[in-house]
Write a protein that binds this DNA or RNA. Sequence first.
DNA 1: AGAATCTATTCCGCATTGTGGAATGAAAGC
DNA 2: GCTTTCATTCCACAATGCGGAATAGATTCT
Lengths: 247, 247
Amino acid sequence: MIQSINRAMQIIETLSQNEKEQWLASELAEETGLPISTVYRITQSLIQHGLVTQIEATKHYELGYKWMELGLKMFEKLDVRDVTRPVLERLALEVEETVYLNLPRGFHSIIIERIDSPRNVKILDSIGERIPLHIGGANKSILANMPHKEVEEILERLVPVKLEREEFKKELASVKQKGYGISYGEKTKGTIAIGSPVFDFDGRVVGAISIEVLAYDITDERMRFFIEKVYEAAQQISSELSGAQLG
Amino acid sequence: MIQSINRAMQIIETLSQNEKEQWLASELAEETGLPISTVYRITQSLIQHGLVTQIEATKHYELGYKWMELGLKMFEKLDVRDVTRPVLERLALEVEETVYLNLPRGFHSIIIERIDSPRNVKILDSIGERIPLHIGGANKSILANMPHKEVEEILERLVPVKLEREEFKKELASVKQKGYGISYGEKTKGTIAIGSPVFDFDGRVVGAISIEVLAYDITDERMRFFIEKVYEAAQQISSELSGAQLG
DNA sequence: AGAATCTATTCCGCATTGTGGAATGAAAGC
DNA sequence: GCTTTCATTCCACAATGCGGAATAGATTCT
Protein backbone atom coordinates (compact mmCIF):
# COMPACT_ATOMS: atom_id res chain seq x y z
CA MET A 1 0.00 0.00 0.00
CA ILE A 2 2.83 2.37 0.72
CA GLN A 3 5.05 2.56 -2.28
CA SER A 4 8.35 3.17 -0.54
CA ILE A 5 7.78 0.30 1.84
CA ASN A 6 6.90 -2.03 -1.00
CA ARG A 7 9.98 -1.00 -2.87
CA ALA A 8 12.13 -1.29 0.22
CA MET A 9 10.90 -4.82 0.71
CA GLN A 10 11.56 -5.64 -2.94
CA ILE A 11 15.16 -4.68 -2.32
CA ILE A 12 15.31 -6.59 0.97
CA GLU A 13 13.88 -9.72 -0.63
CA THR A 14 16.38 -9.45 -3.45
CA LEU A 15 19.23 -9.13 -0.98
CA SER A 16 18.00 -12.16 0.89
CA GLN A 17 18.09 -14.47 -2.11
CA ASN A 18 20.42 -17.34 -1.42
CA GLU A 19 22.17 -17.40 -4.75
CA LYS A 20 23.95 -14.15 -4.27
CA GLU A 21 25.35 -12.54 -1.16
CA GLN A 22 26.53 -9.22 -2.47
CA TRP A 23 24.72 -6.80 -4.70
CA LEU A 24 25.68 -3.55 -6.37
CA ALA A 25 23.21 -0.71 -6.69
CA SER A 26 23.04 -1.27 -10.44
CA GLU A 27 22.35 -4.97 -9.99
CA LEU A 28 19.59 -4.24 -7.53
CA ALA A 29 18.08 -1.79 -9.99
CA GLU A 30 18.22 -4.38 -12.74
CA GLU A 31 16.71 -7.14 -10.61
CA THR A 32 13.89 -5.06 -9.15
CA GLY A 33 13.19 -2.94 -12.20
CA LEU A 34 13.45 0.24 -10.16
CA PRO A 35 15.32 3.34 -11.37
CA ILE A 36 18.81 3.39 -9.98
CA SER A 37 18.36 6.70 -8.22
CA THR A 38 15.40 5.22 -6.42
CA VAL A 39 17.40 2.17 -5.39
CA TYR A 40 20.05 4.48 -4.13
CA ARG A 41 17.70 6.64 -2.09
CA ILE A 42 15.95 3.67 -0.53
CA THR A 43 19.11 1.75 0.33
CA GLN A 44 20.49 4.85 2.03
CA SER A 45 17.40 5.00 4.14
CA LEU A 46 17.54 1.29 4.93
CA ILE A 47 21.19 1.58 5.90
CA GLN A 48 20.24 4.24 8.45
CA HIS A 49 18.02 1.69 10.14
CA GLY A 50 20.40 -1.24 9.99
CA LEU A 51 18.24 -3.17 7.56
CA VAL A 52 20.93 -3.04 4.90
CA THR A 53 24.70 -2.81 5.18
CA GLN A 54 27.05 -1.40 2.61
CA ILE A 55 30.56 -2.79 2.40
CA GLU A 56 32.58 0.41 2.24
CA ALA A 57 35.39 -0.98 0.14
CA THR A 58 33.39 -2.64 -2.61
CA LYS A 59 30.12 -0.69 -2.44
CA HIS A 60 28.29 -3.98 -2.19
CA TYR A 61 25.01 -4.18 -0.36
CA GLU A 62 24.01 -6.92 2.07
CA LEU A 63 21.30 -7.49 4.63
CA GLY A 64 21.90 -5.52 7.83
CA TYR A 65 22.29 -6.64 11.41
CA LYS A 66 18.78 -5.56 12.39
CA TRP A 67 17.31 -8.70 10.91
CA MET A 68 19.45 -10.82 13.16
CA GLU A 69 18.86 -8.63 16.15
CA LEU A 70 15.08 -8.74 15.97
CA GLY A 71 14.92 -12.23 14.51
CA LEU A 72 16.97 -13.69 17.32
CA LYS A 73 15.00 -11.72 19.86
CA MET A 74 11.78 -13.31 18.63
CA PHE A 75 13.49 -16.66 18.41
CA GLU A 76 14.64 -16.54 22.03
CA LYS A 77 11.12 -16.01 23.21
CA LEU A 78 9.94 -19.33 21.84
CA ASP A 79 9.94 -21.61 24.83
CA VAL A 80 8.58 -24.44 22.74
CA ARG A 81 12.09 -24.64 21.42
CA ASP A 82 13.70 -25.19 24.81
CA VAL A 83 11.37 -28.04 25.61
CA THR A 84 11.71 -29.54 22.17
CA ARG A 85 15.46 -29.55 21.75
CA PRO A 86 16.42 -32.41 24.13
CA VAL A 87 13.61 -34.61 22.84
CA LEU A 88 14.61 -33.92 19.24
CA GLU A 89 18.22 -34.67 20.03
CA ARG A 90 17.33 -38.05 21.41
CA LEU A 91 15.05 -38.72 18.47
CA ALA A 92 17.83 -37.90 16.01
CA LEU A 93 20.12 -40.41 17.72
CA GLU A 94 17.49 -43.12 17.77
CA VAL A 95 16.43 -42.82 14.16
CA GLU A 96 19.80 -41.69 12.79
CA GLU A 97 18.13 -39.21 10.49
CA THR A 98 17.71 -35.44 10.38
CA VAL A 99 14.80 -34.18 12.46
CA TYR A 100 13.03 -30.83 12.47
CA LEU A 101 10.72 -28.62 14.47
CA ASN A 102 8.39 -26.38 12.46
CA LEU A 103 6.09 -23.66 13.74
CA PRO A 104 3.26 -22.19 11.66
CA ARG A 105 3.31 -18.50 10.75
CA GLY A 106 0.55 -17.35 8.44
CA PHE A 107 0.37 -19.49 5.34
CA HIS A 108 3.73 -21.12 5.95
CA SER A 109 5.65 -22.93 8.60
CA ILE A 110 9.13 -21.94 9.63
CA ILE A 111 11.89 -24.40 10.43
CA ILE A 112 12.83 -23.48 13.99
CA GLU A 113 15.14 -26.28 14.96
CA ARG A 114 17.08 -28.92 13.13
CA ILE A 115 19.14 -31.74 14.54
CA ASP A 116 21.34 -33.20 11.85
CA SER A 117 21.49 -36.86 11.06
CA PRO A 118 24.61 -38.46 12.51
CA ARG A 119 24.98 -40.36 9.24
CA ASN A 120 26.94 -39.21 6.26
CA VAL A 121 24.08 -38.71 3.89
CA LYS A 122 22.16 -35.73 5.17
CA ILE A 123 19.11 -33.99 3.88
CA LEU A 124 19.34 -30.47 5.15
CA ASP A 125 16.70 -27.83 4.97
CA SER A 126 17.78 -24.58 6.62
CA ILE A 127 16.64 -23.21 9.92
CA GLY A 128 14.52 -20.19 9.10
CA GLU A 129 13.25 -21.68 5.86
CA ARG A 130 9.58 -21.14 5.06
CA ILE A 131 7.42 -23.89 3.62
CA PRO A 132 3.79 -23.50 2.44
CA LEU A 133 1.48 -25.19 4.90
CA HIS A 134 0.13 -27.76 2.45
CA ILE A 135 3.56 -29.17 1.64
CA GLY A 136 5.26 -31.90 3.66
CA GLY A 137 4.44 -34.29 6.45
CA ALA A 138 5.03 -31.83 9.29
CA ASN A 139 2.84 -29.15 7.79
CA LYS A 140 0.04 -31.53 7.00
CA SER A 141 -0.02 -32.65 10.61
CA ILE A 142 -0.18 -28.99 11.64
CA LEU A 143 -3.02 -28.17 9.26
CA ALA A 144 -4.91 -31.32 10.21
CA ASN A 145 -5.19 -30.08 13.76
CA MET A 146 -6.03 -26.43 13.17
CA PRO A 147 -9.53 -24.98 13.54
CA HIS A 148 -11.61 -25.68 10.43
CA LYS A 149 -12.20 -22.03 9.71
CA GLU A 150 -8.53 -21.25 9.61
CA VAL A 151 -7.77 -24.29 7.49
CA GLU A 152 -10.41 -23.23 4.99
CA GLU A 153 -8.89 -19.78 4.69
CA ILE A 154 -5.38 -21.13 4.27
CA LEU A 155 -6.36 -23.75 1.71
CA GLU A 156 -8.34 -21.30 -0.36
CA ARG A 157 -5.15 -19.41 -0.81
CA LEU A 158 -2.76 -22.31 -1.26
CA VAL A 159 -4.92 -24.74 -3.23
CA PRO A 160 -6.94 -22.77 -5.77
CA VAL A 161 -8.76 -25.73 -7.35
CA LYS A 162 -11.84 -26.63 -5.34
CA LEU A 163 -11.78 -30.35 -6.13
CA GLU A 164 -8.16 -30.71 -5.04
CA ARG A 165 -8.98 -28.80 -1.91
CA GLU A 166 -11.73 -31.21 -1.00
CA GLU A 167 -9.43 -34.16 -1.62
CA PHE A 168 -6.80 -32.57 0.53
CA LYS A 169 -9.21 -32.05 3.39
CA LYS A 170 -10.04 -35.75 3.33
CA GLU A 171 -6.33 -36.50 3.65
CA LEU A 172 -6.12 -34.07 6.57
CA ALA A 173 -8.95 -35.85 8.35
CA SER A 174 -7.00 -39.08 8.11
CA VAL A 175 -3.80 -37.39 9.28
CA LYS A 176 -5.62 -36.00 12.29
CA GLN A 177 -7.08 -39.37 13.17
CA LYS A 178 -3.78 -41.25 12.81
CA GLY A 179 -1.71 -38.61 14.60
CA TYR A 180 0.94 -38.30 11.90
CA GLY A 181 1.31 -37.11 8.31
CA ILE A 182 3.51 -38.47 5.57
CA SER A 183 4.70 -36.80 2.41
CA TYR A 184 6.43 -38.46 -0.49
CA GLY A 185 8.83 -36.12 -2.21
CA GLU A 186 6.58 -33.09 -1.85
CA LYS A 187 9.27 -30.67 -0.82
CA THR A 188 12.36 -32.54 -1.96
CA LYS A 189 12.23 -35.24 -4.61
CA GLY A 190 13.41 -38.63 -3.44
CA THR A 191 12.69 -38.03 0.22
CA ILE A 192 9.93 -39.03 2.56
CA ALA A 193 8.90 -36.88 5.52
CA ILE A 194 6.97 -38.07 8.54
CA GLY A 195 5.52 -35.39 10.78
CA SER A 196 3.57 -35.40 14.01
CA PRO A 197 1.84 -32.47 15.70
CA VAL A 198 2.83 -30.79 18.95
CA PHE A 199 0.11 -29.34 21.19
CA ASP A 200 0.21 -26.77 23.97
CA PHE A 201 -1.54 -26.96 27.35
CA ASP A 202 -4.77 -25.80 25.73
CA GLY A 203 -4.62 -28.63 23.25
CA ARG A 204 -3.94 -26.30 20.34
CA VAL A 205 -1.36 -27.16 17.67
CA VAL A 206 1.70 -25.04 18.09
CA GLY A 207 3.78 -26.86 15.51
CA ALA A 208 5.08 -30.21 14.39
CA ILE A 209 8.22 -32.26 14.53
CA SER A 210 9.29 -34.31 11.58
CA ILE A 211 11.89 -36.65 10.19
CA GLU A 212 13.10 -36.57 6.63
CA VAL A 213 14.55 -39.71 5.08
CA LEU A 214 15.73 -40.83 1.67
CA ALA A 215 13.07 -42.81 -0.14
CA TYR A 216 15.31 -45.37 -1.76
CA ASP A 217 16.33 -47.38 1.29
CA ILE A 218 12.97 -47.43 3.00
CA THR A 219 11.29 -50.67 4.01
CA ASP A 220 7.89 -51.16 5.60
CA GLU A 221 9.54 -52.10 8.81
CA ARG A 222 11.76 -49.02 8.94
CA MET A 223 8.74 -46.91 8.10
CA ARG A 224 6.79 -48.27 11.05
CA PHE A 225 9.80 -47.68 13.28
CA PHE A 226 10.11 -44.05 12.18
CA ILE A 227 6.42 -43.36 12.57
CA GLU A 228 6.41 -44.79 16.06
CA LYS A 229 9.45 -42.80 17.16
CA VAL A 230 8.30 -39.50 15.69
CA TYR A 231 4.84 -39.94 17.13
CA GLU A 232 6.24 -40.76 20.58
CA ALA A 233 8.56 -37.78 20.55
CA ALA A 234 5.74 -35.43 19.54
CA GLN A 235 3.58 -36.83 22.32
CA GLN A 236 6.31 -36.31 24.85
CA ILE A 237 6.88 -32.70 23.80
CA SER A 238 3.16 -32.01 24.01
CA SER A 239 3.03 -33.51 27.49
CA GLU A 240 5.91 -31.38 28.64
CA LEU A 241 4.36 -28.26 27.15
CA SER A 242 1.15 -28.96 29.01
CA GLY A 243 3.03 -29.20 32.27
CA ALA A 244 2.73 -32.92 32.82
CA GLN A 245 5.62 -34.80 34.35
CA LEU A 246 6.62 -37.80 32.32
CA GLY A 247 9.14 -40.44 33.34
CA MET B 1 15.67 10.02 4.56
CA ILE B 2 12.46 8.45 3.39
CA GLN B 3 9.68 9.45 5.71
CA SER B 4 7.54 6.34 5.43
CA ILE B 5 10.49 4.07 6.02
CA ASN B 6 11.55 6.07 9.05
CA ARG B 7 8.08 5.93 10.43
CA ALA B 8 7.78 2.24 9.67
CA MET B 9 10.96 1.61 11.60
CA GLN B 10 9.72 3.73 14.49
CA ILE B 11 6.76 1.38 14.70
CA ILE B 12 8.95 -1.71 14.35
CA GLU B 13 11.31 -0.54 17.07
CA THR B 14 8.37 0.15 19.33
CA LEU B 15 6.99 -3.31 18.72
CA SER B 16 10.36 -4.84 19.50
CA GLN B 17 10.63 -3.28 22.93
CA ASN B 18 10.90 -5.98 25.51
CA GLU B 19 8.51 -4.55 28.06
CA LYS B 20 5.46 -5.07 26.00
CA GLU B 21 4.58 -7.80 23.55
CA GLN B 22 1.28 -6.61 22.19
CA TRP B 23 0.34 -3.17 21.00
CA LEU B 24 -2.89 -1.58 19.85
CA ALA B 25 -2.89 0.93 17.02
CA SER B 26 -3.76 3.70 19.47
CA GLU B 27 -0.89 2.74 21.76
CA LEU B 28 1.51 2.74 18.85
CA ALA B 29 0.26 6.18 17.86
CA GLU B 30 0.75 7.44 21.40
CA GLU B 31 4.23 5.98 21.73
CA THR B 32 5.52 7.14 18.36
CA GLY B 33 3.67 10.45 18.25
CA LEU B 34 2.28 9.65 14.80
CA PRO B 35 -1.34 10.30 13.81
CA ILE B 36 -3.38 7.18 14.20
CA SER B 37 -4.43 7.05 10.59
CA THR B 38 -0.78 7.06 9.66
CA VAL B 39 -0.02 4.24 12.07
CA TYR B 40 -2.87 2.35 10.56
CA ARG B 41 -1.75 2.83 6.99
CA ILE B 42 1.83 1.89 7.73
CA THR B 43 1.01 -1.19 9.80
CA GLN B 44 -1.25 -2.43 7.00
CA SER B 45 1.63 -2.14 4.62
CA LEU B 46 4.02 -3.84 7.02
CA ILE B 47 1.56 -6.68 7.54
CA GLN B 48 1.54 -7.28 3.78
CA HIS B 49 5.25 -7.92 3.95
CA GLY B 50 5.25 -10.06 7.08
CA LEU B 51 7.13 -7.48 9.13
CA VAL B 52 4.18 -7.08 11.46
CA THR B 53 1.42 -9.47 12.47
CA GLN B 54 -2.01 -8.56 13.67
CA ILE B 55 -3.77 -10.89 16.06
CA GLU B 56 -7.19 -11.08 14.45
CA ALA B 57 -9.14 -11.58 17.65
CA THR B 58 -7.66 -8.79 19.74
CA LYS B 59 -6.42 -6.39 17.05
CA HIS B 60 -3.05 -6.40 18.73
CA TYR B 61 0.09 -5.88 16.71
CA GLU B 62 3.31 -7.86 17.04
CA LEU B 63 6.49 -8.31 15.07
CA GLY B 64 5.99 -10.53 12.01
CA TYR B 65 7.62 -13.76 10.97
CA LYS B 66 9.84 -12.09 8.38
CA TRP B 67 12.27 -10.99 11.06
CA MET B 68 12.78 -14.55 12.12
CA GLU B 69 12.93 -15.81 8.59
CA LEU B 70 15.65 -13.44 7.46
CA GLY B 71 17.37 -13.26 10.83
CA LEU B 72 17.73 -17.01 11.05
CA LYS B 73 18.85 -17.15 7.45
CA MET B 74 21.69 -14.76 8.20
CA PHE B 75 22.40 -16.58 11.42
CA GLU B 76 22.75 -19.92 9.68
CA LYS B 77 25.37 -18.55 7.34
CA LEU B 78 27.74 -17.80 10.18
CA ASP B 79 30.06 -20.76 10.17
CA VAL B 80 32.06 -19.22 12.99
CA ARG B 81 29.19 -20.37 15.13
CA ASP B 82 29.50 -24.02 14.18
CA VAL B 83 33.20 -24.07 15.01
CA THR B 84 32.69 -22.13 18.20
CA ARG B 85 29.87 -24.05 19.78
CA PRO B 86 31.69 -27.21 20.91
CA VAL B 87 34.62 -25.21 22.25
CA LEU B 88 32.27 -22.90 24.15
CA GLU B 89 30.39 -25.85 25.55
CA ARG B 90 33.56 -27.33 26.96
CA LEU B 91 34.61 -23.97 28.30
CA ALA B 92 31.29 -23.52 30.09
CA LEU B 93 31.72 -26.88 31.78
CA GLU B 94 35.29 -26.15 32.82
CA VAL B 95 34.66 -22.71 34.29
CA GLU B 96 31.09 -23.36 35.42
CA GLU B 97 30.02 -19.92 34.29
CA THR B 98 27.99 -18.50 31.41
CA VAL B 99 30.03 -17.99 28.24
CA TYR B 100 29.27 -15.97 25.11
CA LEU B 101 30.27 -15.48 21.52
CA ASN B 102 29.93 -11.94 20.16
CA LEU B 103 30.35 -10.76 16.58
CA PRO B 104 30.81 -7.10 15.66
CA ARG B 105 28.23 -5.37 13.44
CA GLY B 106 28.76 -1.67 12.93
CA PHE B 107 29.15 0.17 16.21
CA HIS B 108 27.93 -2.76 18.26
CA SER B 109 28.52 -6.41 18.79
CA ILE B 110 25.76 -8.97 18.74
CA ILE B 111 25.52 -11.91 21.09
CA ILE B 112 25.48 -14.88 18.74
CA GLU B 113 25.84 -17.79 21.09
CA ARG B 114 25.43 -18.32 24.77
CA ILE B 115 26.11 -21.41 26.82
CA ASP B 116 24.52 -21.10 30.22
CA SER B 117 26.36 -21.65 33.43
CA PRO B 118 25.57 -25.06 34.92
CA ARG B 119 25.36 -23.37 38.31
CA ASN B 120 22.27 -21.95 39.85
CA VAL B 121 23.24 -18.32 39.79
CA LYS B 122 23.22 -17.29 36.17
CA ILE B 123 23.94 -14.00 34.50
CA LEU B 124 22.07 -14.08 31.26
CA ASP B 125 22.31 -11.62 28.44
CA SER B 126 20.12 -12.57 25.50
CA ILE B 127 21.20 -13.98 22.21
CA GLY B 128 20.64 -11.24 19.67
CA GLU B 129 21.37 -8.47 22.14
CA ARG B 130 23.44 -5.56 20.88
CA ILE B 131 26.17 -3.98 22.96
CA PRO B 132 28.15 -0.83 22.05
CA LEU B 133 31.68 -1.81 21.07
CA HIS B 134 33.39 0.10 23.87
CA ILE B 135 31.50 -1.74 26.60
CA GLY B 136 32.59 -5.05 28.10
CA GLY B 137 35.57 -7.37 28.00
CA ALA B 138 34.60 -9.14 24.79
CA ASN B 139 34.05 -5.94 22.86
CA LYS B 140 37.27 -4.38 24.06
CA SER B 141 39.18 -7.39 22.82
CA ILE B 142 37.42 -7.02 19.47
CA LEU B 143 38.17 -3.30 19.19
CA ALA B 144 41.76 -3.81 20.29
CA ASN B 145 42.39 -5.96 17.26
CA MET B 146 40.60 -3.97 14.60
CA PRO B 147 42.39 -1.78 12.05
CA HIS B 148 43.27 1.60 13.58
CA LYS B 149 41.25 3.54 11.07
CA GLU B 150 38.08 1.67 11.88
CA VAL B 151 38.68 1.95 15.62
CA GLU B 152 39.10 5.71 15.29
CA GLU B 153 35.81 6.02 13.45
CA ILE B 154 33.96 3.88 15.96
CA LEU B 155 35.40 5.63 18.99
CA GLU B 156 34.64 9.09 17.63
CA ARG B 157 31.05 8.07 17.65
CA LEU B 158 30.95 6.15 20.91
CA VAL B 159 33.32 8.20 23.05
CA PRO B 160 32.76 11.88 22.29
CA VAL B 161 35.34 13.29 24.71
CA LYS B 162 38.77 13.33 23.12
CA LEU B 163 40.71 12.83 26.34
CA GLU B 164 38.69 9.78 27.32
CA ARG B 165 39.15 8.43 23.84
CA GLU B 166 42.91 8.67 24.10
CA GLU B 167 42.85 6.93 27.48
CA PHE B 168 40.69 4.22 26.03
CA LYS B 169 43.05 3.64 23.15
CA LYS B 170 45.88 3.10 25.60
CA GLU B 171 43.77 0.47 27.33
CA LEU B 172 43.10 -1.16 23.96
CA ALA B 173 46.82 -1.35 23.24
CA SER B 174 47.29 -3.25 26.47
CA VAL B 175 44.34 -5.53 25.72
CA LYS B 176 45.83 -6.33 22.34
CA GLN B 177 49.21 -7.10 23.79
CA LYS B 178 47.85 -9.32 26.56
CA GLY B 179 45.36 -11.14 24.36
CA TYR B 180 42.35 -10.57 26.61
CA GLY B 181 40.19 -7.75 27.90
CA ILE B 182 38.51 -7.36 31.26
CA SER B 183 35.58 -5.20 32.24
CA TYR B 184 34.36 -4.52 35.74
CA GLY B 185 30.65 -3.96 35.86
CA GLU B 186 30.53 -2.03 32.58
CA LYS B 187 27.49 -3.70 31.17
CA THR B 188 26.00 -5.21 34.31
CA LYS B 189 26.86 -3.90 37.76
CA GLY B 190 28.43 -6.46 40.05
CA THR B 191 29.80 -8.64 37.28
CA ILE B 192 33.18 -9.06 35.68
CA ALA B 193 33.61 -10.05 32.06
CA ILE B 194 36.74 -11.53 30.52
CA GLY B 195 36.90 -11.59 26.74
CA SER B 196 39.38 -12.87 24.23
CA PRO B 197 39.42 -12.27 20.47
CA VAL B 198 38.77 -14.81 17.74
CA PHE B 199 40.60 -14.47 14.41
CA ASP B 200 39.90 -15.88 10.97
CA PHE B 201 42.40 -17.45 8.58
CA ASP B 202 43.52 -13.98 7.47
CA GLY B 203 44.31 -13.01 11.04
CA ARG B 204 41.42 -10.55 11.21
CA VAL B 205 39.18 -10.32 14.27
CA VAL B 206 35.82 -11.84 13.58
CA GLY B 207 34.55 -11.65 17.13
CA ALA B 208 35.29 -12.55 20.71
CA ILE B 209 34.30 -15.10 23.27
CA SER B 210 33.79 -14.11 26.86
CA ILE B 211 32.86 -15.27 30.32
CA GLU B 212 30.77 -13.27 32.72
CA VAL B 213 31.11 -13.87 36.44
CA LEU B 214 29.80 -12.33 39.64
CA ALA B 215 32.33 -9.97 41.17
CA TYR B 216 31.75 -10.81 44.81
CA ASP B 217 33.23 -14.29 44.91
CA ILE B 218 36.25 -13.64 42.75
CA THR B 219 39.77 -14.32 43.95
CA ASP B 220 43.06 -13.64 42.20
CA GLU B 221 43.51 -17.31 41.67
CA ARG B 222 40.07 -17.82 40.11
CA MET B 223 40.67 -14.81 37.95
CA ARG B 224 43.91 -16.26 36.60
CA PHE B 225 42.12 -19.54 35.97
CA PHE B 226 39.31 -17.85 34.03
CA ILE B 227 41.69 -15.77 31.97
CA GLU B 228 43.72 -18.79 31.03
CA LYS B 229 40.68 -20.84 30.05
CA VAL B 230 39.03 -18.10 28.01
CA TYR B 231 42.27 -17.29 26.28
CA GLU B 232 42.91 -20.93 25.43
CA ALA B 233 39.41 -21.41 24.08
CA ALA B 234 39.69 -18.31 21.89
CA GLN B 235 43.03 -19.53 20.56
CA GLN B 236 41.58 -22.90 19.74
CA ILE B 237 38.64 -21.40 17.88
CA SER B 238 40.98 -19.16 15.90
CA SER B 239 43.14 -22.16 14.98
CA GLU B 240 40.14 -24.09 13.80
CA LEU B 241 38.88 -21.16 11.78
CA SER B 242 42.24 -20.86 10.08
CA GLY B 243 42.07 -24.49 9.07
CA ALA B 244 44.76 -25.81 11.40
CA GLN B 245 44.30 -29.25 12.93
CA LEU B 246 44.72 -29.20 16.66
CA GLY B 247 44.80 -32.20 18.97
C1' DA C 1 48.16 10.56 -21.82
C1' DG C 2 43.68 11.06 -23.56
C1' DA C 3 39.32 9.09 -24.91
C1' DA C 4 35.77 6.11 -23.92
C1' DT C 5 33.02 3.51 -20.91
C1' DC C 6 31.74 2.13 -16.82
C1' DT C 7 29.51 3.09 -11.99
C1' DA C 8 28.16 5.53 -8.00
C1' DT C 9 26.13 9.64 -6.46
C1' DT C 10 23.71 14.08 -6.57
C1' DC C 11 20.34 17.44 -8.35
C1' DC C 12 15.96 19.43 -8.98
C1' DG C 13 11.34 20.52 -11.19
C1' DC C 14 7.21 17.95 -11.22
C1' DA C 15 3.18 15.19 -9.81
C1' DT C 16 2.24 11.26 -7.50
C1' DT C 17 2.06 9.55 -3.23
C1' DG C 18 1.29 9.71 1.33
C1' DT C 19 -0.77 12.66 4.74
C1' DG C 20 -3.80 13.48 8.78
C1' DG C 21 -8.03 15.64 10.43
C1' DA C 22 -12.42 14.50 10.48
C1' DA C 23 -16.26 11.25 9.68
C1' DT C 24 -17.98 6.59 10.27
C1' DG C 25 -18.71 2.36 12.37
C1' DA C 26 -18.51 -0.98 15.88
C1' DA C 27 -17.99 -2.44 20.58
C1' DA C 28 -17.77 -1.78 25.50
C1' DG C 29 -19.03 0.68 29.77
C1' DC C 30 -22.20 3.41 32.55
C1' DG D 1 -29.77 4.75 25.41
C1' DC D 2 -26.09 7.72 25.89
C1' DT D 3 -21.05 8.20 26.25
C1' DT D 4 -16.54 6.68 25.56
C1' DT D 5 -13.08 4.25 23.20
C1' DC D 6 -11.32 2.13 19.61
C1' DA D 7 -10.49 0.59 14.66
C1' DT D 8 -11.16 1.81 10.11
C1' DT D 9 -12.22 4.69 6.00
C1' DC D 10 -12.39 9.00 3.37
C1' DC D 11 -10.60 12.71 0.79
C1' DA D 12 -8.74 17.44 -0.35
C1' DC D 13 -4.25 19.03 -0.09
C1' DA D 14 0.70 19.57 -0.51
C1' DA D 15 4.80 17.70 1.02
C1' DT D 16 7.30 13.98 -0.10
C1' DG D 17 9.42 11.05 -2.97
C1' DC D 18 10.22 10.49 -7.83
C1' DG D 19 13.40 9.54 -11.67
C1' DG D 20 15.70 11.45 -15.81
C1' DA D 21 19.60 13.66 -16.51
C1' DA D 22 23.91 15.77 -15.03
C1' DT D 23 28.20 15.07 -12.36
C1' DA D 24 31.99 12.83 -10.53
C1' DG D 25 35.10 9.24 -10.09
C1' DA D 26 37.20 4.97 -11.45
C1' DT D 27 38.81 1.74 -14.93
C1' DT D 28 39.88 0.14 -19.47
C1' DC D 29 41.23 0.73 -24.09
C1' DT D 30 43.83 3.03 -27.88
